[in-house]
Amino acid sequence: MSSVLIKNEARLGLKLVAPAVGIIGLLVIYPILFNVYLSFFDVQLNGTKIFVGFDNYSELLGNPRYYNSIGISVVYLLGTVTGTTVLGLAAAILMNQEFHFRNLARGLILLPYFAPVISVVFGWQFIFDPVNGIYNHVMVDVLHLSDTRENMIGDPDSALFVVILFDIWKHFPIAYLLLLAKLQSVPKDLYEAAAIDGQNAWGRFWHVTLPELKFVIATVVLLRIIWNLNRFEDVFLLAPNVETLPIFTYYQAFSGVVDQGGAAAISVIQLLVLVGLIWLYVRKVLKW
């Protein structure tokens, strides 16, 4: 292309993205900047702000509960991101096979993703209810794997496990959907070529399916990390005693001693970490 054409195209591109940039600026950049601003103040209940410099940050970094919640968030992220990706991939591969009622099954799999959090959360709490829940019934009375009925959600350690399971169940369909879409577009003759080249089913998965899915899997992982680092409602509604970073931030900001400045400091750090993570991931892992 001639340089004039390229220049014109660039100018057109600018015009086209300008409105979006404006809206994003208002809706996203402003709150972020305000958040950064807040993190340097002690915000009183009546709204007056007292400048405190880096006090909020140093206080936070000296708080053991903060480190505890970082640990919990890391476990939560590892569990949910791996779980949804693997389960989503398995479901996508399964649903890519030919069988009766496949279209029905493809639709049904999406249900957990569509269901409103608030209603399914009650269902899950009921499943793990120490007295009447089916989980304890199966573990204790049917399989005899345990002698005592556990309050899975009551105990923060096992509640973390439940919260991870819940997230995997609720969110694997989005991984499934993205992966299935890509899977359907993998040319059939690649599998045939691999078979001719001596690869059995596992080899074909490893040498054809996985490389073809690489970028979609990476996208799924990236999205899941971003979403779940900020995930609040699922965890809070199901088991508010699992103190992931967003939950800890919430407690910090709106309960007990209300400390909006401190909460803002947490989110600023979290934002920096997230941006750093994504940069690392995109540039180093994906080499995009």
Binding site: D189, I196, P211
Partner: peptide, 30 residues
């Protein structure tokens, strides 16, 4: 006998080259 046990080589009408592999890797894969 499935194809991978027949020890055959085939050239496909639409090439069916592995897109993520270099030419070298494509050639030596089988």
């Amino acid at each position: 006998l499935p194809p991978h046990k027949r020890n055959i080589a085939m050239v496909f009408q639409n090439y069916a080259l592995y897109p993520h592999m270099s030419v070298r890797e494509n050639i030596v894969f089988g």
